[in-house]
Amino acid sequence: MQYRLQGIVIRSMDYGEGNKIITLFTREQGKMSIVARGAKKVKSRFGSTVQLFTLGDFSFFKSGQLGTLNHAEIVEAFHKLREDLHLAANASYLAELTDRMLGDQEGQPYLFEQLKGSFHALLEGKDMQIVVHLYEMKMMMHAGYMPELEQCVICGSKGEAVSFSVGLGGILCETCRLRDPQAIALTPGALKLLRIFVQTDVRRLGQIDVKPQTKALLKQILRAYFDTHAGLRLKSRDFLDQMDRYEI
């Protein structure tokens, strides 16, 4: 079958002497993997279009598991994401997260726009950690791992939340907080931001000034929650953690 789709390159790997296999995240068909023959050659017509993060219009024939690229045109190169180490590391994490959490040919127009919007937000100088957390929440909602953030996960109380239970999957009130000794103490500011991550379209994200202590707490909560409920080991996240440790 012949396809002509707009997609974002979320993975690119060498294949044979001169070829590449790229994974596209498309609006209508979700993830699709295709071979770009000769893409590694210096004068290849596909060289720039198959680079990671590129948004393009792709024409390809697909009859089995892999398609064959016939034509590609760049819509947005997002080249600055590849030129800055911190931007590249965060964009790589978003791309790998998408690749690992979506099934093949699972159309997700909203998530497609959120990924594209996240790339724009990174380029616009929005807080990288906030952009990443917002997209992480969208992916967890899609995968069915949405945490309970509106009422106590045990008693249903909508009173003040004082902690977050990773294992139980949501907030705890003062009365129930001792039911999970490992629950993470929660501040009102952190809870407000967690709710913002659920409700906000990344394309409408403004400049948010978040205290370092709050950002550290958000990272602790979301990392622990993701590891417990999604259980994926991502190389790009390991690199982000390494950058944080050594302040690259």
Rank of each mutant, 00 (worst) to 15 (best):
I8D: 07
Q51R: 04
T98A: 00
Y145E: 03
F46M: 05
M243K: 03
K192V: 12
L85P: 02
S118L: 02
M137E: 12
N70M: 10
D84L: 06
D241K: 08
L66Q: 14
G170L: 01
R204I: 13
D241W: 08
F164M: 02
S12G: 09
A89R: 10
R237T: 11
K41P: 04
L102W: 09
V42I: 13
H79F: 15
F112K: 07
E174K: 00
R82L: 09
V153C: 01
R82W: 06
R233T: 13
V132D: 14
D244S: 12
V75H: 08
T23P: 00
E106R: 04
L240S: 08
T26H: 11
G170I: 12
L115P: 03
P109R: 06
G7K: 02
M243W: 14
A91I: 12
Y3V: 09
L234K: 04
T54D: 04
Q220T: 12
G30T: 00
L85Q: 14
C173V: 13
K31D: 11
A89V: 10
D241L: 09
L102T: 11
M137H: 04
S48V: 15
F197S: 14
D127V: 08
L240Q: 07
V153Y: 07
I130Y: 10
E113N: 07
L193T: 03
Q65I: 15
R100F: 03
S33W: 10
L81P: 03
D99P: 05
M32H: 03
R223Y: 15
N70Q: 11
Q29T: 11
L5A: 11
I154T: 15
N19P: 05
Y135Q: 04
T214I: 13
N90L: 02
E76T: 13
V153A: 00
D84A: 03
K31S: 06
D180I: 08
C152D: 12
L234F: 02
L85S: 05
Q2T: 12
G16S: 01
V202N: 08
G117C: 11
T23I: 12
I34Y: 04
L193K: 04
